[in-house]
Computed example of a mutant assay.
Amino acid sequence: MNVRTGAPSTDYAALRRDPEYAGLNRALLDLVPVGSGPAVLDLGCGDGAVSEQLLLRDAAMSLVGVDPDAALLDAARARLGDRARFVEGDASAVARLFRPDAFDVVVLANCIHLVPDLAEALDAIGEVLVGGGRLVFNSAFYAGAESGADLPLYAELVAGARRAARERGLPLAGSAAGRPAGLRRTAGDYRAALAGAGFTDVATAEREFTLGPRFLTALCATPMFATAALPGVDRHTAAELLTASLEKQYECAPFTITRRCVYFSATRP
């Protein structure tokens, strides 16, 4: 069974086009209050895809996107023009980039697991939110997101790619070296961090979704997955090796994987 949809792009564009992934984003956007022209910060905005969806839901909102990748911000500006403002920075820097109480809502779509110092970031976000302002975020990459029954499928996917890397003589680092700390957090860790940062009215939900061949192929091409699975290998090459390993698995026995996404909504007192 051929699962390829073209050469791996090693970005998130292909993943966003997957209907399951789009559904995850819609569930997050449903948590964002609309009306009365709120000031919204799209933190970790990337190329502005979620920013665009936010503006489609409420054209009256004042939206600012922040991301540490200048190239992605250029793409966001090209996408949205003067409909939003984009600023280079990361989650921990927002208190230095913006005045206190600057935003009614802060959104982190599918990126909270990439924040290295969660406590520092939540403190900074709390400073730029107005009293009563909302923080919403989601992640499908946390400890407990995977079904235990599916863990061997992940393991074989990565193992096959690592075998191919060794056959090519590529310099693999230890398996834990490239794994972001955020991928080891649990949903409970996020609840505790929100409480520690003083957020209240914390609401959380988990949603199951299915990773079919298209989703898995797109996932293999993302920088986060590729570099975590094959640390030390160029991410474009890592994506290629993971995609080839996935294809071999599907030739033996087609499968789907069940995964969970966690959603949080919290209030700054």
Rank of each mutant, 00 (worst) to 15 (best):
A59D: 14
E52K: 07
P68H: 05
G48F: 00
D201Q: 13
D74G: 15
A229L: 07
Y12S: 04
F86T: 06
L135Y: 06
T204P: 00
E88D: 06
H236C: 07
L194Y: 01
V130Q: 11
A193V: 00
T237D: 11
E146T: 14
A124E: 01
S245D: 11
L151I: 15
F137Y: 03
A60R: 10
M224C: 13
G35I: 09
I257V: 15
D189W: 00
A192K: 03
V233L: 10
L151H: 10
C220V: 09
V32Y: 04
L55F: 05
D117I: 01
A27L: 11
A221N: 12
D234R: 05
G212Q: 07
L135C: 04
L242T: 08
L114Y: 04
A176W: 12
R57L: 07
R184K: 12
R184Y: 12
A159M: 09
T258I: 14
A13C: 09
D42F: 01
G6Q: 09
R235M: 09
A195R: 11
D74H: 11
T243W: 04
G196P: 09
V262M: 03
P223K: 02
L151W: 13
T217F: 14
A161T: 08
A121N: 02
L170Y: 08
A164E: 15
E251V: 15
L72I: 06
P33Y: 04
L230D: 13
P231I: 15
A102E: 13
A218C: 06
A164G: 08
L29Q: 02
V34E: 12
R168G: 10
V202E: 03
L157I: 11
A244H: 10
T243C: 14
A60G: 11
A239H: 08
H113V: 05
Y142D: 00
P100W: 09
G160L: 11
A143R: 13
T217S: 15
L73C: 02
D90A: 12
R260T: 02
F98G: 06
T200N: 07
L43C: 02
L183I: 01
Q53W: 04
M1Q: 13
F199P: 01
L41N: 01
L72E: 05
A109Q: 03
G35P: 10
G35L: 08
